[in-house]
């Protein structure tokens, strides 16, 4: 069991405190390909932030590989984010003044890997994602699908055990959405990486093997989806 959450609560303090997560219990096995699905305001982004150690939680337990993630120092949290978890964002979040290969290199820069080794590894990953010829291009010279593949390469380069994808297809058209989801599925099968996709699109969720529904800060139905036939809109309408 790789990821475990027990009774996780999160409240955003403010003029009007917002109780977003109201006791999340969840376990995700090593090598799973799951989606967390919910409408906006359901708490799915907050859950993702907690899973990614980008945010803290108030109550409960979050355990990765048997280690409790709570009250970490900045250094420890940065270490986890750097080595254990890879992020894929809706808006790609590539650094605009860096080329594709430099963006992919960046996590290794913070690991202190030397420049040549970094470059070699980054080129290797870009090659695997079919972007070798685009290595020297800046993000604004690439299509959405290409940018997302650069972002995936960046997430993969540190060999993370977990990849967290926040609406990975949110800014892509339906064709590239399918490609990106297939790529994630392939990575899951071939590398055995645990992939957690957060989405509000049923089509995207349908590509994963397990769909965890979240509603009003509580885990709802959990669908096993080995057959990939869970789409509310039928199997023919894949996405959008």
């Amino acid at each position: 069991m790789q990821i475990e959450l027990h009774n996780v609560h999160k409240t955003y303090e403010g003029a009007q405190p917002l109780h977003v997560l109201k006791g999340i219990d969840l376990s995700i096995e090593k090598g799973e390909f799951v989606s967390i699905m919910g409408a906006s305001g359901s708490g799915k982004s907050t859950l993702l932030n907690i899973l990614g150690i980008l945010d803290s939680y108030d109550e409960g337990e979050y355990i990765i590989d048997g280690r409790l993630i709570k009250g970490l120092s900045e250094r420890q949290a940065a270490g986890y984010r750097n080595r254990t978890i890879g992020f894929i964002f809706q808006s790609f979040n590539l650094i605009s003044f860096k080329t594709a290969v430099e963006n992919v290199e960046l996590p290794l820069f913070y690991q202190g890997v030397n420049r040549r080794r970094r470059h070699e590894l980054a080129m290797e990953y870009l090659d695997r994602l079919g972007l070798k010829d685009w290595a020297g291009h800046y993000p604004n010279e690439m299509s959405g699908g290409q940018k997302q593949r650069v972002a995936i390469a960046r997430a993969l380069i540190t060999h993370p055990q977990i990849i967290l994808a926040d609406e990975p297809t949110g800014a892509l058209d339906s064709k590239t959405s399918v490609e990106v989801m297939e790529l994630l599925g392939q990575l899951n099968r071939e590398e055995g990486v645990t992939i957690i996709v957060v989405t509000h699109e049923s089509g995207v969720a349908n590509c994963t093997n397990r769909i965890i529904h979240i509603k009003d800060g509580i885990i709802g139905e959990i669908e096993e989806n080995r057959e990939h036939k869970a789409s509310a809109f039928g199997t023919t309408t894949v996405m959008k």
Partner: peptide, 13 residues
């Protein structure tokens, strides 16, 4: 955003 990205991929404060 850039700094957020750097932090998200493991940069220390």
């Amino acid at each position: 955003v850039e700094i957020g990205i750097r932090r998200a991929i493991g940069a220390l404060p």
